[in-house]
Nucleic acid binder design. Structure first.
Length: 722
RNA sequence: GCGCCCGUAGCUCAGCUGGAUAGAGCGUUAGACUCCGGAUCUAAAGGCCGUGGGUUCGAAUCCCGCCGGGCGCACCA
């Protein structure tokens, strides 16, 4: 029985009294939790604004209502305080009792919610900015599931974009000496290097994440290519060719066939075959996707579907959306001016865009190719179930099984290749289906995307609106968050470690933070950082072990602590503030950190281990709950109980505002209350049986609550020991 | 220029639909259990909540102006 339940009933009772006593009708009665427990457990400040309306002193209003309201039975006492606050006191043992009996909350489903997150360009290793996206998206998913929603998680794969093309350009056209340097091998002829790169692909397996994976190879190649574009005009032309080849596709060409074709072209000096280029690009994208999945698996982040941009192209999603947009008169072909030859969406009629210098957005380039925003409109329509064919049926992808996965506990790492969960991917064969699974057609859609993409996101939303679906547009939500940047200190550390300079000038290094850039190669790679975190956690465990023997599960403990530190770091900061990444801060395990929370949880569970050994008692049992009825519950224990009761209120609030700092703050407060009263309320040494039972009850509640909050909601694993 | 975001303790940040004495962590200083784990706890010091107006019984929170910083306004994503 969460607190929101009592709140709702008390508010309803109060509304009734307001109606009968003052003839005042309202459905907006908000009961809040006062700043401290001396004042009460719930409070209603509503008498104050009503004083003017009723021409009565607020205290008098509050007094009347206190007396006349038929309060729910959990409320034992009502007080008037200050200028007219109505303060409610709860029956402590009743609340404790009901929380322990915890009838599980099963709400009605309100249709399917689709959450799109991660969406890393499949052309290089993930960096810590991508981790922010994945953690926020994943915590949103967990909260939605907790609130009883059906959720589908999609990780969009931009496999036909410029960025993948850039890496392919690098492989095919970067000077051999540079390419070999990027690959960290002896200089060699290109056909040999191509062979080595193809050999480095993970194939159909899921790579184990380490810092020498295929995505790390791409991380080195990519900036070398982008650095060269301004210096070499030919290279830019090559990029256009590659992009074209990628869009055209490769039919069924096998990878070894493509490899042979590319190598033969190197030797003969003939141009590369378009199909072979496209096959290579697909292999590069697929390899990077696998690496990204492996990285996210470390954090316990998983997905239901990998929609591919190439399938959006090949299955005519865009051409269908294009027709719909034309029919609706939302787009036009420009005949002159700077956008001549382009199809643009006019935004001049939308108030939000009216003041823009150029309120038009190009959806089809003058060379006939579609922009990302164009494809995104089609994708968004599909997600909302609005991409329909002329016969009224839903335009859909083909689907295949990418792999299966398993997760032992809610926050454990994800292991791919086994287990009951299926991860689907889209295919270009619309007839292909995955038995028992359907995708898309969501009632509500969250797009977890960097705030810097707000403008194109607004354009996509506006397109949905113009196509006659304003209510669907409102249910399509851009979950915007600020970027992760690096403190200058962090930049210096990376430069030192990698032995190269990013060439930032003095002015840039004086600022509060430096933006990461895949194109320039400035960034902290996700796996690299997780490795550092794990090493530091292992060190901390060893330090604390002192002379004692090292635990056998040192690695898994260190992993749990690393994940806890990282996920909490990402969750606790409000989303629209730039996260300036600093190694010292991120590697801290004390204070307001994930490990602090994990420790409080471990510490509480330990009580029961010791209790079992010394007294043969454990967690509170169902049969003992009645005996708690007459317990006197002191203030500090009560504060812990009340905080536990607050979970659903907090989760609902976090989802409504998309502010997980609220959830993080709640867990931190809870852990803090526990640590503070820990010594004052010993369980094992306590001889008084009633007192011991009460404490067992409260700590059972706390341990369970932390399990739900950390593992289920924040995805932070709680190790057996730390 | 237009739009969005940020400005809270020395530093990094919370502060929910306005509500009672603005909270954490780090850092600084001084302390703590022969006890269920010290990744802990106690205490001290540290705040014109950028600034000026407005609305309100009540403003860190809402509105307007200004100052400082960031981002966006691509035939990139």
């Amino acid at each position: 029985m969460p607190l929101i339940d009592i709140r709702t009933r008390a508010a309803a009772a109060l509304a009734d009294a307001l109606k009968t006593e003052f003839d005042h009708i309202t459905d907006e009665i908000i009961l809040e939790v006062p700043p401290n427990r001396d004042l009460g457990d719930l409070a209603w400040p509503g008498a104050l604004p009503l004083a003017g309306v009723f021409r009565t002193a607020p205290r008098a209003i509050a007094e009347t209502l206190a007396e006349k309201t038929r309060w729910p039975d959990e409320i034992t006492r009502v007080e008037i305080a200050g200028p007219g606050f109505l303060n409610l006191f709860l029956d402590r043992s009743t609340v404790l009792e009901r929380l322990l009996r915890a009838d599980e909350f099963k709400p009605q489903s309100q249709g399917k919610t689709i959450v799109e997150h991660t969406n890393i360009n499949p052309n290089k290793a993930a960096h810590i900015g991508h981790l922010r996206n994945a953690v926020l998206g994943d915590v949103l998913v967990r909260c939605l599931l907790h609130l009883g929603h059906e959720v589908e998680v999609q990780n969009y794969i931009d496999d036909t974009g410029v960025q993948v093309a850039d890496v392919v350009v690098g492989v095919l056209y970067l000077p051999e000496i540079d390419l070999a340097a990027a690959m960290d091998v002896e200089p060699s002829r290109r056909d040999d290097l191509i062979g080595r790169i193809i050999q480095a692909l993970p194939g159909d397996t899921m790579p184990t994440p380490d810092s020498k994976d295929f995505d790390d190879l791409c991380w080195e190649i990519y900036p070398r290519v982008t650095n060269l574009y301004p210096l070499d005009e030919n290279l830019a032309a090559r990029r256009a060719e590659v992009l074209h080849a990628v869009e055209a596709g490769f039919d069924t060409m096998a990878l070894d066939e493509a490899e042979f074709s590319l190598q033969r072209s190197v030797i003969s000096g003939e141009p590369f075959s378009g199909r072979a280029i496209a096959r290579l690009a697909a292999a590069v994208a697929d390899a990077n996707v696998r690496c990204h999945l492996a990285t996210m698996a470390r954090l316990g982040v998983a997905y239901d579907l990998l929609p591919h941009e190439s399938d959006i192209l090949h299955l005519g999603f865009w051409s269908r959306a294009f027709d719909l947009l034309k029919q609706a008169g939302a787009i036009r072909l420009e005949k002159e001016g700077k956008n001549s030859g382009c199809w643009v969406m006019s935004l001049a009629d939308s108030p939000e865009f009216a003041d823009m210098e150029d309120p038009d957005k190009i959806l089809v380039r003058s060379n006939g190719t579609v922009t990302y925003t164009g494809k995104d409109i089609a994708y968004q329509l599909w997600k909302l179930g609005l991409l329909t064919d002329p016969d009224g049926s839903r335009h859909d992808f083909g689907y295949d099984l990418f792999t299966t996965w398993a997760q032992d506990r809610p926050a454990s790492p994800v292991s791919y290749g086994a287990g009951d969960h299926r991860l689907g991917l889209t295919t270009s064969d619309a007839q292909q289906t995955l038995p028992g699974l359907t995708f898309g057609n969501g009632d509500r859609v969250y797009n977890v995307i960097d705030v810097r993409q707000s403008y194109p996101q607004k354009v996509v939303k506006e397109a949905v609106r113009i196509l006659g679906h304003p209510e669907a547009a409102d249910r399509s939500i851009h979950f915007a968050y600020e970027m992760v940047a690096l403190t200058p200190a962090a930049v210096r550390i990376i430069e030192e470690k990698s032995g190269r300079s990013f060439g930032l000038d003095r002015e840039q290094m004086q600022k509060a933070y430096v933006e990461m850039s895949g194109r320039k190669g400035i960034g902290v790679k996700a796996d690299e950082f997780l490795d550092i975190l794990e090493a530091r956690a292992a060190e901390a465990i060893k330090d604390r072990a002192g002379e004692a023997e090292l635990p056998e599960d040192l690695d898994s403990r260190a992993q749990a602590i690393a994940v806890g530190a990282l996920r909490y770091l990402m969750a606790r900061q409000s989303r629209n503030r730039v996260l300036a990444f600093d190694f010292d801060e991120a590697l801290s395990f004390e204070g307001d950190t994930g490990p602090y929370l994990q420790y409080s949880s471990v510490r509480s569970r330990k009580i029961f281990d010791k209790l079992q050994k010394r007294r043969g008692e454990g967690r509170i049992e169902e049969s003992e709950i009645d005996a708690l009825a007459q317990s006197e519950i002191p203030n500090d224990l009560w504060a812990l109980i009340l905080e536990c009761a607050l979970r659903r209120d907090v989760v609902a609030q976090a989802v409504a505002t998309l502010e997980f700092s609220l959830l993080a703050g709640h867990v931190h407060t809870l852990a803090q209350i526990f640590h503070k009263l820990y010594h004052a309320h010993p369980v094992v040494p306590e001889e008084n049986e009633n007192l011991r039972r009460l404490r067992r009850a409260v700590f059972t509640l706390f341990a369970d609550e932390m399990g739900v909050l950390l593992e289920e909601l924040l995805g932070i694993p709680v190790p057996e020991e730390m």
